[in-house]
């Protein structure tokens, strides 16, 4: 009898402790971080939303935004992202989760390499690895500088821009300094395409 009442008393304590802890850790704590975030860094806290020249919320600076049709074919007018296991849809996120010797993955990267080489007019050996592989999230907005560079002629032609102007935008959007040293020089395609649109609009 004594043992049972001991258990019941402790179970009561457990339930009340959980409830009180939930109020502090599950409500007050995230709300405090929310408040601090809105004061200290509202841009980041709200998803790093960037606007276009007309003031319209155009994209998140951190999330891949593809100009692609429903079949997943990327529009040749714009810089292309890496392949994505989720079709660049931020409602979800995933890697392909295929193994390093997976036959399907081998076939996919081989097909991708040929397709990128054809659309950029370069030899298959010039296609960098990031251009044919999907990222861990499927939402990575970044590509390597090499991949951006082989896309320059195509994008410049589509917008009637000088290739060196486009290359300059790439250089501007490429990570540098300590960040690039710790990771690798990377170009944010979401932001780059916005810059291309701005430049094209200002020239025409």
């Amino acid at each position: 009898m004594n043992i049972i009442s001991g258990y019941l008393r402790q179970a009561g304590t457990a339930i009340r402790f959980l409830l009180l802890a939930t109020i502090v850790l599950g409500l007050l704590y995230p709300l405090a971080v929310f408040g601090a975030g809105q004061l200290a860094a509202p841009f980041q806290a709200n998803g790093s939303i960037v606007k276009d020249s007309s003031g319209q919320a155009a994209a998140s600076a951190l999330i891949a935004q593809a100009a692609a049709d429903d079949a997943g074919t990327q529009d040749p007018q714009w810089f292309h992202l890496r392949p994505s296991a989720v079709g660049w849809d931020p409602a979800t996120s995933s890697a392909s989760n295929l193994g390093p010797n997976d036959a399907k993955l081998l076939e996919t990267v081989t097909t991708n390499r040929a397709a990128v080489a054809a659309s950029e007019g370069v030899s298959p050996e010039e296609v960098p690895a990031d251009a044919v592989t999907s990222s861990g999230s499927g939402l990575d907005p970044h590509i390597s500088k090499d991949y951006a560079t082989i896309q320059v002629p195509r994008v410049a032609r589509a917008h009637g821009l000088e290739p060196q102007d486009v290359q300059e935008l790439i250089n501007k959007q490429t990570t540098s300094g300590f960040e690039a040293f710790l990771s690798q020089p990377s170009v944010n395609v979401t932001l780059l395409n916005l810059e291309i649109a701005n430049l094209a609009a200002s020239r025409n």
Binding site: I49, D52, S60, P90
Partner: peptide, 29 residues
């Protein structure tokens, strides 16, 4: 948050008028 991690309670609709891309950018704590 300062480093870029989201902390809000809503999602944001974005439209890139130049490329025609529309997305719903998720949010959350």
């Amino acid at each position: 948050v300062i480093g870029g991690v989201v902390q809000n309670f809503w999602s944001t609709e974005v439209t890139n008028t130049a490329t025609g891309a529309s997305q719903v950018i998720p949010g959350g704590p």
